[in-house]
């Protein structure tokens, strides 16, 4: 576990010292503030976090996470440091989980900045914190943690497939968009039982319960499976380098 944390810390620090990390953070804060918070709350005069969560699910998850994860393996491969890492006394799964954890922690930190909006809502709503449905907000954050965990794992998997960061970005973007939206779209254009299967497999559909305040076991299993599956594949890919 110590080795996992060491790798995670190293990758997290690498994000903080790279311009990409700060550009992602700035872009995220500007978009959530302007389109997710100011417009819905001030224009709609409603104490809601729906706009913020909407920006996160439509922009941070499919677009910014690939930016965060594109370098985790691809950069190491292009610079030849992945071989060094793999020949050091760490197991493949520790490398996979450590690198995922680094990117995921960065995502969590980005997510944490949105707590400022909760504080602002609590400050301005009559009755303050007692009036806000904190359970509803917490449930959505739980969903964002699971969905983000799966998305960072998928992004890391895309990065492990290539040594070109741009390719890794577009690959992750394509996989995430497919995972998030394709199920819903295909569900509309197919007949049962296929439509039911597609709709079930659509990430956006699986996230809906969380955004309604409901933490559902099947949704947790879905996102966990995506994340664990991607991490498992990364481990196998790293292992495959030994026999190639």
């Amino acid at each position: 576990m110590t080795r996992v944390l060491t790798i995670a810390r190293r990758d997290l620090m690498a994000l903080f010292v790279s311009p990409a990390g700060w550009v992602v953070a700035a872009l995220f804060v500007v978009l959530t503030s302007a389109f997710g918070f100011v417009l819905p709350v001030l224009a709609g005069q409603a104490a809601t976090m729906d706009g913020v969560f909407g920006v996160i699910t439509s922009f941070l998850l499919p677009v910014l996470i690939p930016v965060i994860t594109m370098r985790v393996f691809a950069e190491e491969r292009s610079e030849g440091t992945l071989e060094l890492l793999l020949t050091s006394p760490v197991r493949d799964w520790e490398v996979a989980v450590g690198k995922w954890l680094g990117a995921f922690t960065f995502y969590v930190l980005l997510l944490a900045t949105t707590l400022v909006y909760v504080v602002l809502l609590a400050a301005y709503i009559p009755g303050h914190l007692a009036s806000l449905d904190l359970g509803l907000i917490a449930s959505t954050y739980v969903g964002l943690l699971f969905a983000g965990g799966a998305a960072t794992a998928i992004g890391a998997l895309a990065s492990s497939l290539t040594q070109n960061q741009i390719v890794a970005f577009f690959l992750a973007l394509a996989i995430l968009l497919l995972t998030w939206y394709a199920g819903t779209l295909l569900g509309f254009f197919t007949q049962p039982p296929a439509s039911g299967l597609f709709q079930y497999a659509g990430g956006s559909n699986r996230f809906q319960s969380f955004s309604l305040g409901l933490v559902t076991l099947k949704d947790i299993v879905y996102f966990s499976s995506l994340g664990i599956g991607a991490l498992f594949l990364i481990t196998r890919l790293l292992d495959s380098r030994r026999w190639r």
Partner: peptide
């Protein structure tokens, strides 16, 4: 993982975290 999802999809276990029991 697929089997786990098939089993999970048949369960209705969930927790309503909303303050006023919206769900």
């Amino acid at each position: 993982l697929v089997a786990l999802n098939v089993v999970a999809s048949r369960t209705t276990l969930s927790w309503d975290l909303t303050h006023s029991g919206l769900n």
